[in-house]
Design a protein around this nucleic acid. Structure first.
Lengths: 206, 206
DNA sequence: AACGTCATGGTACGTTCGTATCACGAAACC
DNA sequence: GGTTTCGTGATACGAACGTACCATGACGTT
């Protein structure tokens, strides 16, 4: 073989170019030529590493979900040291809100992909079921721990509560992106809910 | 003027054709030719009544939001007779969940439009701020009434609670559309929340 | 040293899309 | 009753898109 280049690395480079340009102009507006230009390679190369646009999109979604999952769990881990379970719950939910650019891009593109998945039933069943389920499991576990530490209202069903909180966070995220609500307002709404669920009325929000 | 046709009527006909075909194949996949075929008219006519695709899309969104608003308020009104405020709250939230075809189409397309609105900041600022705000006002009012009738936990902030419930409903709706969650499961989550907010533990869900 | 294969560039092809143009019948107005 | 205006059809145009094809260095293998 000649230059023997690392295919995996090349693919993630291109996929991140896709994420960047799609985050700027919208997923519906990006073509392979845009991705190629953003990545600084020729159109032919994008075709070479991903044979078809559909495969590129699919890989981009996986990349997006993976990166965001790492971001959230990093924040939860960082919050794990100090004030207890509620801080971790808040870290998880707040990290999911589109307050900074990275999170905005994620929400924007993830929603775009979700819309595609509504018709192309086959497209990426995994990322839209497996990842949210994992998040729900993680949040459920955090709530259970809080419940065992007697910090939580005992008559909440941890699993149902986790599902509700995540759905609420997602819904608030969308309303932020479309300009209906400010990130601060969304934080207030979330915190109000947590205040009623947790026994201590302390707000630890940012 | 010759045949003097009712422009407004024609426009809504075409817009509903747009909604039908977009609901089937996805908003990203419909062109003016598809809309024309679905409406049973020529491409030229679609151009004639809407000069540009953007105007067609805009009118379609207004039409969509209007129809859905009527649907929800009709259901709330229908539930207003019998068992009290909670039934109306449930009616509002449940009507917004994508359980039937009409509601599924609405969620699907509304989300598609929301994605477009994230980049085309100008596109339809109204429908994505005015309508949700109106829904929030209505739900807030219902919650306040329940609170005055002493049916509600007195330490809930009606406005914040309304915002949270609507965001949760929207988030659950999306998770249904992507196949992560069943409508029944979403209903359970919503009802669990209402059970903790309302003083009576009665579930009046469908 | 020759060869085959990998990485890459350039470019062409066929399709589809939104929009514009030309044409024409019919009806209302003076 | 002629003229103007409205509703409608058919079709053409230019751009953009995804994909396919052809060519050509560069390098490891034999």
């Amino acid at each position: 073989m000649p230059k023997r280049v690392d295919h995996a690395e090349r693919r993630t480079d291109i996929a991140e170019a896709l994420i960047r340009v799609a985050g700027r102009r919208g997923l519906h507006a990006v073509g392979m030529r845009d991705v190629a230009a953003e990545a600084g390679v020729s159109l032919r190369l994008v075709q070479y590493y991903f044979q078809t646009k559909e495969k590129l999109l699919l890989f981009g979604l996986e990349q997006l979900a993976e990166r965001f999952g790492e971001r959230v769990s990093a924040r939860v881990r960082a919050a794990g040291d100090s004030p207890g379970p509620r801080a971790m719950v808040e870290a998880l939910l707040m990290a999911a809100l589109p307050a900074d650019d990275e999170s905005r891009t994620f929400h924007h593109l993830y929603t775009s992909y979700a819309v595609l998945a509504m018709t192309d039933r086959a497209l990426a069943a995994q990322p839209f079921i497996k990842n949210p389920d994992a998040a729900e499991d993680a949040l459920t576990e955090l709530l259970r721990q809080a419940q065992e530490a007697d910090l939580l209202d005992p008559d909440v069903d941890a699993r149902l509560e986790a599902a509700g909180l995540l759905a609420m966070s997602a819904g608030l995220g969308t309303s932020i992106l479309v300009g209906q609500r400010s990130p601060e307002s969304a934080t207030t709404v979330l915190d109000h809910h947590l205040n009623r669920i947790f026994r201590t009325g302390d707000a630890v929000l940012t």
